[in-house]
Simulated assay, not measured.
Amino acid sequence: MANTFRMDPSRFDALPLDRGIAASRQRIEAMEKLLERVVVLPGINRPIGLDVVLGLVPVIGDIAAAALGSYIIWEARNLGLSRFQMLRMMGNVGFDAVLGFVPLVGDAADLLFRSNTRNLRIIRKHLDRHHPSSVVVEG
């Protein structure tokens, strides 16, 4: 019988699944890192993520990247952000998606316009003001 690979859940830190503010913050930060800062491009020392990679696939990749970015907005809704903040976040993801539909321009825009990082900044500002106990010291 062939050797099968079994994943040991104790070997990695899983994201928390509870409904707490701190858990939501960790999930949002993990999604932003996945979409915007997974690896660093050698030569230009610019971090890229799944958003840039998906942007290389015409139309379907941009739709998938927008859907993943919408998860951050959904989490923000659950955290109680205002309608104005939600509209700004939707505008960021929408603008990124529309730019992505333009060949070559969209690929360059994915490197420069980081909608998910902007949305994370909006969420952090809200959480720092309204839920200071969820603040994480980054080191």
Rank of each mutant, 00 (worst) to 15 (best):
V135D: 04
D128I: 03
R114H: 14
P103E: 00
L35E: 03
D96F: 06
A67C: 06
A64I: 05
Q26W: 01
F12G: 06
L79E: 05
L50D: 05
L79K: 11
L87G: 04
V98C: 10
A64Y: 07
V59L: 12
P132D: 02
I60R: 08
G80D: 02
A97C: 12
V135M: 12
R124P: 15
R88P: 00
G49R: 11
Y71W: 08
Q85H: 04
V57D: 06
P47S: 03
Y71G: 04
M89E: 15
P58H: 00
V38M: 15
D110T: 09
A76M: 02
G43D: 08
E29K: 14
P103G: 00
L50P: 12
F5N: 08
L79W: 12
T4D: 07
A76L: 06
T4Q: 02
S24N: 11
E29Q: 12
R118Y: 10
I123C: 15
L127T: 10
R77C: 11
L15I: 09
E138H: 13
A2E: 03
N92L: 05
R129A: 15
I122W: 07
L112Q: 08
D128Y: 09
D96K: 14
M1C: 10
L127A: 10
L81Y: 10
N92Y: 07
R121C: 01
S134D: 06
V93Y: 12
V93R: 14
L127E: 13
V93I: 06
Q26P: 00
N45R: 04
D110W: 00
P42D: 02
L34T: 07
V59I: 15
L41E: 11
I21H: 00
M7G: 01
M90Q: 04
L111W: 08
V102C: 05
Y71F: 06
R77G: 14
V53G: 04
L35K: 12
V59P: 10
I73W: 02
V137D: 15
W74N: 06
V135Q: 09
N119R: 10
K125E: 14
A30H: 15
Q26N: 02
M86H: 11
P103S: 00
P132S: 12
N92T: 06
R19V: 02
I72W: 08
L50G: 09
D13T: 08
R6G: 10
A67K: 05
V52P: 00
L41I: 09
S115E: 10
P16D: 14
N119C: 01
D18P: 01
R121Q: 13
R37Y: 08
G69M: 01
F113D: 03
S133V: 10
N78M: 08
A67H: 12
D128W: 06
R11Q: 11
R118D: 01
R83C: 04
S133K: 15
I48E: 05
A22P: 13
V135I: 14
L17S: 15
M90L: 09
G20D: 03
Q85R: 03
M89L: 06
R27Y: 13
I28W: 01
R124D: 02
L112R: 11
A64W: 06
R129Q: 15
A14R: 07
Q26T: 02
S70M: 03
H131Y: 15
M86C: 05
I21Y: 01
R88C: 05
I48Y: 07
V135T: 13
G69N: 07
I63G: 04
